[in-house]
Write a protein that binds this DNA or RNA. Structure first.
Length: 489
RNA sequence: GGCCCUAUCGUCUAACGGUUAGGACACAAGAUUUUCAAUCUUGCAAUCGGAGUUCGAUUCUCCGUGGGGUCACCA
């Protein structure tokens, strides 16, 4: 059996779209599962839409996600160049071949004339009046400096059959397939020619792409046929929709992969969530019993199979993503490493940055907070108080305002209690402390937990915190008393 | 509008033509609790409609309907 080679072929027109990651993930899994190669090709034939820096960002995103590329402009490989702008002559060669075999033609349509003609053909396959002009005549016009494009000569009255790996057999009436531009007037190829040529030359064995390409597949069928190339199986993947039903778009929320990572989603969670949007694991299911939904990248690669792909659209459900993220934050084993890497990459400019990096107790602090944080951002917020004392505590919040007038006295009593404890916080006894605090609540005629809340507010500055006693043990007695005293002012 | 894809709880999904249609997220209630969480238990909730094939249809076929995609010298 020949080598499985799959590719992901983004255009450098902006950030890496989160939906694209899922397409890439499936292509990646299929290649890796079969000990094949995963190649990344940059499709930059649209000069106008090129965005500076987006190629770099694509590679950074793959890197952060832990998806290993085998061949690309950055990773090398024997089928390069892996960027289309450097393969210009190659496409022209194939286009000429199509002209010579009578399956493509030079077209000189432009401007208003072209626009008018196009609207005439709306809903039908576009046909240019130059379609049947003799090549020798066209060549002469070109010699005279006339700008041209090369168009595919789609046969009339034919049924074009596309056998899709996922969507099955689809028939297209060739009369509704347009004479697509293959080479643009600037000499660069259009997508339709470039994919076929590149996938062939790069020996791609399976093509995974978004379903919005399905209507263009008869063009690829034709180009393969006219070039005498065997068409690899195509798998058109369903789209990921936003919760309102439309296409996932920037306008309705974040779709940039890097942004998700910046917001504090772990790559493991992102990948796990995405893999399940259109694929389900072939695992044994016992009636009424919980199914496994947590899969690592390597487990996914191992389990992945084309037969388990779903072909209906899926809605991007952010709650579920958050759930995955919580699960990973709770259970991942080197959380401190993950956390500092993330911090270094996205938030090296924040005030507590160096304090966090130098902190020997970081893992302990993260462990105390990880069950109450859905994202790394929340985790960061929840450990802030260790590094910066609260200022201007707001005593008007719901939790404490009913006994606001008693607070100063309570704080004074807490100070007295804690002062009596030993200097080394790690030797403090939790039971003693709990009893002391409960006694205090009783003294002021309050609910058992109220004194704890006062202490919490002084130390953390918020009514929400990790377990108080453990948190105090990660501070010093001096610091704790300082915070209590400053709350008095 | 033409063409194409698609259809199971609100969402992601499972179910050799025979199951009380399962699981997960979300939601609700309870237990636990010094906060927020976490955890545990329970609950709510679906086969788009209509024909046909069949002893039997979520599953196969057809017709509707809904949703999505696409009709560029963009990918």
């Amino acid at each position: 059996m020949s080598t499985v080679r799959t590719r992901f072929a983004p255009s450098p027109t902006g950030f890496l779209h989160i939906g694209g990651v899922r397409t890439a993930l499936y292509a990646y899994a299929w290649a890796k599962k079969n000990n094949g190669k995963f190649v990344l090709r940059i499709e930059d034939t649209d000069v106008k839409r090129f965005v500076e820096g987006s190629i770099e960002e694509i590679f950074i995103a793959f890197d952060l996600l832990g998806l290993n590329i085998d061949e690309s402009i950055n990773h090398g490989g024997e089928y390069g160049p892996y960027i289309q702008s450097e393969r210009k002559e190659i496409y022209m060669k194939y286009a000429k071949q199509l002209i010579d075999s009578g399956n493509a033609y030079y077209c000189f349509l432009e401007g208003e004339e072209l626009e008018n003609l196009k609207s005439e053909f709306k809903g039908k396959g576009f046909r240019s009046p130059y379609r049947d002009v003799e090549t020798s005549k066209s060549l002469e016009m070109i010699k005279n400096g006339k700008p041209f494009t090369i168009r595919l000569k789609v046969p009339n009255n034919e049924t074009i059959i596309h056998n899709d790996g996922l969507q099955g057999r689809i028939e297209f009436d060739s009369n509704i397939v347009s004479d697509e531009v293959l080479i643009k007037s600037n000499g660069l190829p259009s997508y339709h020619l470039a994919v076929v040529v590149d996938d062939y030359l790069m020996k791609i064995s399976h093509v995974f792409r978004a379903i919005e390409w399905l209507p263009s597949s008869p063009k690829q069928v034709l180009i393969h046929r006219f070039l005498n190339l065997e068409m690899p199986p195509y798998y058109h993947l369903p789209v990921i929709l936003d919760p309102e039903g439309g296409k996932l778009s920037k306008r309705k929320g974040n779709v940039s992969t890097k942004e998700f990572l910046r917001e504090g989603y772990l790559s493991e969670a992102l990948l796990n969530f995405l893999m399940l949007l259109g694929w389900s694991a072939p695992i044994d299911r016992v009636f009424g019993e919980k199914e496994r939904e947590i899969f690592s990248l390597s487990e996914f690669v191992e389990l992945f199979d084309l037969k388990d792909l779903n072909n209906s659209n899926a809605i991007f459900n952010k709650e579920k993503l958050l759930w995955f993220n919580k699960e990973y934050i709770k259970t991942i084993n080197n959380l401190d490493k993950k956390f500092t890497e993330w911090l270094k990459y996205f938030y090296s400019d924040i005030d507590i940055y160096s304090k966090v990096l130098d902190d020997k107790d970081l893992l302990n602090k993260l462990n105390l907070s990880k069950e109450r944080s859905a994202t790394l951002i929340e985790l960061l917020d929840s450990i802030r108080f260790y590094y910066t004392a609260p200022v201007n505590i707001n005593w008007d919040n719901e939790k404490v305002k009913e006994y606001k007038e008693k607070i100063l006295d309570i704080i004074k009593d807490i100070i007295k209690i804690l002062e009596s404890y030993s200097e080394d916080v790690t030797t403090w006894n939790q039971e003693t402390w709990v009893n002391d605090m409960k006694e205090l609540s009783k003294k002021y005629n309050l609910k058992g937990g109220d004194s704890f809340m006062v202490l919490r507010m002084c130390i953390v500055g918020s009514p929400f915190s990790p377990p108080l006693f453990e948190a105090m043990q990660l501070l010093s007695k001096h610091e704790i008393l300082e915070r209590l005293k400053s709350a008095l002012n």
